[in-house]
Write a protein that binds this DNA or RNA. Sequence first.
DNA 1: ATCGATGCAAAGTTTTTGCAATGCT
DNA 2: AGCATTGCAAAAACTTTGCATCGAT
Lengths: 155, 155
Amino acid sequence: MAKVDVEQVRLRDTLHDKGLRMTEQRRLVLNAVRALEHATPEQICREVASVNITTVYRTLELLERLGLVRHTHLGHGAPTYSAQEHRHVHLVCHRCGHVDEVPVRQLAELAGTLRATAGFELDASHLALSGRCAGCADSVSAHSTYSVVDDQEPS
Amino acid sequence: MAKVDVEQVRLRDTLHDKGLRMTEQRRLVLNAVRALEHATPEQICREVASVNITTVYRTLELLERLGLVRHTHLGHGAPTYSAQEHRHVHLVCHRCGHVDEVPVRQLAELAGTLRATAGFELDASHLALSGRCAGCADSVSAHSTYSVVDDQEPS
DNA sequence: ATCGATGCAAAGTTTTTGCAATGCT
DNA sequence: AGCATTGCAAAAACTTTGCATCGAT
């Protein structure tokens, strides 16, 4: 598959530009990030069993500095990594943990507002929004349990 | 100060409703969360030195279940807690780490869009947006360093 | 007096660091 | 050959658990 080679060459070139080296581990980790989509370091490590967990951490940090991957905090646990080109907004349900995705475009308006009011350049591809997914939002009326935090502000 | 007593009574009542007990530690931790604003468990523990770190963790979890505090993941490290009534959106600069805040209202439009398109109920008070703060966005032109990830999508 | 809450110590998780061995270039 | 990279082991950082004691009700 030509695409794979292209990606691989791109990685090699990016590394060489910085005086860094192309290794099998780096290729494997990058491929795993692309294949798994928002995966934690541990999940990535499981996927590429031959690569040591230490190397996974170091490689993810490197790939992020190179702009090839990004990480997001989807919940309480470990950060999750995705390929740079995988641009979307994560919608994380903090009831059931389900992660949905919507196009980055939906944030354009917000990005404009934040730029205007706070001078803040929103990085939309880096983003996790929490709330209730469709399924859990529906079932809310049936619950008013101890363990659930729920109260939307008046307006 | 009457306000303090009111808050304290509210905490006591909320606890008693569940058959739980009002303790000095719970009062101290809740006050610390309110005073510090988006503080990590460790920072809270430092603030209320007399309370054991274990108790801080347990109390934060409890207060969150009771709907009195919330937590957000502002960055790589530990989660940060704020009082439930402290409603705002965090703007986290992933260059310098600075955390700014804007009113939740700015998300109203986005919340509507997500509800309509994905059935997702956005929890705006729980939110951290990452990007570049005004200061770091300004200085971007001066840098094209190795360590900086930067590339906004075409449109 | 009862039973929930706390503190201490110990264990569990996740991530980082030091260093000798390995392997790109 | 030179120097970045890896793997291992150990440390560090963060969080949870068990249990005896303490304290709110």
